[in-house]
Design a binder for these strands. Structure first.
Length: 485
RNA sequence: GGUAGGAUGGUCUAGAUUGGUAAGAUUUUUGCUUCGGGAGUAAAGGAUCCAGGGUUCAAAUCCCUGUCCUGCCA
């Protein structure tokens, strides 16, 4: 069987694994564990995602940088919390040829300690600020056995932007801009519904003052952590000596923010969320091929149909200039198999043309989201396809929009939390504190309920609780609890 | 960490109880017939059966060691 053998909502894990193999997205047989080659179909989409993300960052004042992949251990050791958080997961380069290196080199797990070393040389005065840069590339983290293609790997693909400001206020504004960027990209371009939480102290980026992370709302009631933006304050600028001369000729340390959308993980979230029992479904702009034309003929009608199909292809290419169109004229594959194959790969629009259509001066069009088939006259095709193209992603977003409030269940006790999580809800509760003194309560939730405290909402919160759901002390915060991937 | 399985053509699996010519499906290549929702047929190609050692006339199969994978429990 070439199609996916299970239904998405019956066995998600199996569905996802088969989708990746059968739609030729990635090949898990590479002989280093946790490192995965992405095949052409996934690579094309991932490159498109990079492009739209990079354009957006540049529009908002960031410039690109290309940075080395290796970071000397001495840089890496400069910020204590950062080291503590990352060193168990660093791949180290220890040898050059046969010779042991004098200093170990880290394969970057993130680039703060490479960049800020250079920022301290590049930034001289307040005239250089704000200083906004981004790096696109791979990072390496030695994860445990629990890897899953696109979601968690030992090498993954991301963009990290690192911005330096003269004041804390400007840095805070940047964090807000990063969150807006995330909504623009994930919700508008990639059709993934998200919500931002401020992470509790015990769960923030190592070295950050605050971490704000987007959680994607998956239809199973689970959440998946997507891009996060971090207010680093002066935690890195002091050890790395990122200083500038202000208007009064005084030396000041900069305020830094960093933002890291992991493109490979967003891709995973997108295919997992948007896909259906027939396979992949992709937003219009991100599909490697947007329109596939399938000729249908018998031996007697072959030449005539193929000729008309080629004419159709030429016409489509003329009036859909930004679109990738493919005529699937393979003779050795039956139409039925082509239908299934292109559905598996998530081509948004299929156009069929056969003898009956030629006679009636029409084509048959099939919608990847609804599966609906209809006939369209050739004279109307130009209008039809242009409105189809502009509506496709909107339809997809509508189908997967999740009303956050409708997923939420309020809970006053740990038992209520447990019950609601069991019903695939996201739980809203009172909590003593999201500072370090609240960690023991979070650990209890983790242990008893097998769900995680995601933090407090960044946008306005309308629920208020008297007491912490765990310890019963006065609730300083309203927080959300969910299971996560 | 505990525990139970597993590793055989590109892929999935049989073969193990009872040691004896490595099997099937699928994939790939080619020919002919097909083609409006996963085509049929004929042929060809493809595995030192995870690694190393032992028992034996003979090992995919039995024994030992190692490596890697998977499930379940903490």
């Amino acid at each position: 069987m070439k199609g996916i053998s299970v239904k998405k909502n019956e066995d998600f894990s199996q569905w996802y694994t088969e989708l990746i193999q059968k739609a030729e997205l990635a090949d898990i047989r590479y002989n280093v564990r946790g490192l995965v080659p992405y095949r052409a179909w996934a690579s094309i989409t991932i490159r498109k995602m990079y492009r739209v993300y990079e354009e957006t960052l540049e529009r908002k004042g960031h410039l690109p940088l290309i940075m080395p992949t290796l970071i000397p251990e001495s840089n890496f050791m400069l910020e204590a919390k950062h080291v503590e958080g990352f060193s168990p997961r660093v791949f180290w380069v220890t040898h050059g040829g046969d010779k042991e290196l004098e200093e170990r080199l880290a394969l970057r797990p993130t680039s703060e300690t490479a960049l800020y070393q250079m920022y301290s040389l590049w930034i001289r005065s307040y005239n250089d600020l704000p200083f906004k840069r981004y790096v696109s590339g791979q990072v390496f983290r030695y994860e445990g056995a629990d890897t899953r293609v696109f979601f968690r790997a030992r090498e993954f693909h991301w963009i990290e932007s690192h911005d330096v400001f003269a004041t804390e206020e400007e840095a805070k504004q940047q964090v807000i801009e990063d969150m807006e960027t995330t909504y623009e990209m994930l919700q508008d371009e990639f059709a993934i519904p998200i919500i931002f939480f401020q992470r509790p102290e015990w769960d923030k980026f190592p070295g950050a003052v605050h971490t704000y992370a987007a959680d994607a709302l998956m239809d199973s009631g689970k959440v998946l952590q997507l891009p996060s933006t971090h207010l680093l304050g002066q935690n890195f600028s002091i050890p790395f000596d990122v200083k500038f001369i202000d208007e009064n000729n005084d030396e000041q340390y900069g305020y830094i923010t960093c933002y890291g959308p992991a493109i490979s993980r967003i891709y995973g979230a997108m295919i997992a969320l948007l896909g259906d029992d027939n396979g992949l479904v992709l937003p219009w702009d991100l599909a490697p091929i947007q329109v596939v034309v399938i000729p249908i003929y018998r031996s007697a009608t072959k030449d005539e149909v193929l000729e008309k199909a080629r004419e159709l292809e030429t016409a489509l290419k003329k009036y859909m200039k930004e679109t990738t169109i493919k005529l699937d004229d393979r003779d050795y594959v039956s139409p039925g198999e082509k239908f299934n194959e292109w559905e598996l790969k998530g081509v948004p629009l299929r156009i069929e043309i056969g003898p009956k259509d030629i006679q009636n001066e029409q084509v048959v069009v099939v919608n990847r989201i609804s599966g609906n088939k209809e006939s369209v006259k050739l004279v109307d095709l130009k209008n039809y396809t242009s409105s189809y193209a502009s509506n496709f992603t909107k339809e997809l977003k509508k189908k997967h929009s999740i009303q956050f409030e409708a997923q939420v269940q309020l809970a006053q006790t740990v038992d209520e939390v447990k019950k609601a999580i069991g019903e695939n809800k996201i739980v809203c509760s009172g909590f003593c504190s999201i500072d370090l003194d609240g960690e023991s309560c979070a650990e209890l939730i983790e242990k008893e309920v097998k769900a995680f405290v995601r933090g407090k909402r960044v946008d306005t919160e309308k629920h208020k609780f008297e007491k912490c759901v765990v310890c019963g002390k006065p609730a300083k915060e309203t927080i959300y609890i969910a299971r996560s991937y």
